[in-house]
């Protein structure tokens, strides 16, 4: 068991943080929020494939 557990990785790293005054956010969380905003905008502007041929 100990041998098995020793093989398990320990990926605990503090990560990269961005800060503007009182606002602080981790890079991973910032990437997810930006990706959602990009998806939101693209969903409004991109044409839907085959959309014009439907009734």
């Amino acid at each position: 068991m100990l041998e098995l557990m020793s093989q398990a990785p320990s990926p605990i790293t503090p990560g990269t943080y961005f800060g503007w005054g009182d606002v602080m956010i981790q890079s991973g969380n910032l990437v997810v929020i930006i990706a959602m905003l990009v998806l939101f905008v693209l969903a409004l502007v991109l044409p839907f494939p085959g959309g014009r041929s439907r009734k």
């Binding site: 998806l39 693209l42 969903a43 409004l44 991109l46 839907f48 085959g50 959309g51 439907r54 009734k55």
Partner: peptide
Amino acid sequence: EDQPSYVATWAYVF
């Protein structure tokens, strides 16, 4: 079997 035409947009996919 089908949906109104306004459903054919990415806004209705998520």
